[in-house]
Amino acid sequence: MQVLATFRRMGAPHWLGLYAVVLAAWAALFAMQTPVELRNLADLYGADFWRELCTVEAGWAGLPITILMWLLMSAAMMAPTAIPALVTWDDLVISGAARGFGALLFGYLAVWGGFSVVASILQVVLAEFQLLDGFGKSTNDLVTASLLLIAGAYQFSALKEACLSKCRKPLTFFMQYWNEGPLRMGLRLGAVCLGCCWALMVLAFVGGTMNLLWMGGAMILMFLEKMPDIGRYLTRPVGLALIGAAGLVLVF
């Protein structure tokens, strides 16, 4: 009954607004996808084909659209992973103990907006050194293996575990920082989430920054990692798989 009541409550206007943001982000990312035919031509004619096709937007001139892409990607992927924390906050709002659902969400997404700017700059720099192709995918085995190894090793880090412990117990987290207000708590929640997920997000440079299949899979993984009953059995095996993948890239 409590689960059904929660689902009914998530039809309120502020929840519908959140769904609209997520759906709009996914729709925009889908619209920005490079057509399959163009991808096939790039594979056929090599990196020079893509560079010549996109000379107007190459390098730093393309930074604004790259930032937009990362902002959309962060909203589409990270807002759904915050739903357990947002449901907890909504419970507090309904009980009269809290207010400011929008402020909490804004603070959370603002942190990921900052990450998006940094990731965009990193993408442009890597592309300038021809370490990424026009689809934001690594063209260098050493870079690919390094990203996989870093992400895999981070799965075993104390920082990752500390951040996950807060994400998995949102009520305890809110109580700990109650006096800071919804906006600052949203910023702090975003920072904790960033501590959980930044390494997995950077793997976009392995899967391709405009690869919707990778985005969807990574979003599901990060969501499950934040679930107390599931995530504790998932984090380390994922780390081992990523480290193993790094080894395979170097060997083969």
Rank of each mutant, 00 (worst) to 15 (best):
R168W: 13
K169I: 02
K169F: 07
P170N: 01
P170S: 05
P170M: 03
L171D: 12
T172M: 11
F173W: 07
F174I: 00
M175W: 10
M175C: 08
Y177A: 01
Y177L: 10
W178K: 03
N179C: 02
G181E: 01
P182K: 02
L183S: 09
L183N: 05
L183I: 04
L183R: 14
R184P: 01
R184K: 15
R184S: 10
M185D: 05
G186P: 08
L187H: 06
L187R: 06
L189F: 13
G190A: 09
A191G: 15
A191I: 14
A191M: 13
A191R: 09
V192Q: 05
C193D: 13
C193T: 00
L194M: 12
C196I: 12
C196P: 02
C197G: 02
W198K: 08
W198Q: 09
L200F: 15
M201N: 05
M201C: 12
A204C: 13
A204K: 00
V206H: 07
V206R: 03
V206D: 10
G208Q: 06
T209W: 08
M210H: 11
N211I: 02
N211E: 11
N211D: 15
N211R: 09
L212D: 04
L212E: 04
L212C: 08
L212Y: 10
L212S: 12
L213A: 15
W214A: 06
W214L: 07
G216D: 01
G216L: 12
G217P: 03
G217A: 10
A218I: 12
A218H: 02
A218T: 09
M219E: 08
M219G: 06
M219S: 14
I220Q: 03
I220V: 15
L221P: 00
L221I: 10
M222L: 15
E225D: 12
E225C: 09
E225W: 07
K226I: 06
M227S: 06
M227W: 04
P228A: 11
D229T: 14
D229V: 14
I230F: 11
I230H: 01
I230C: 04
G231P: 07
G231V: 05
R232N: 09
R232L: 12
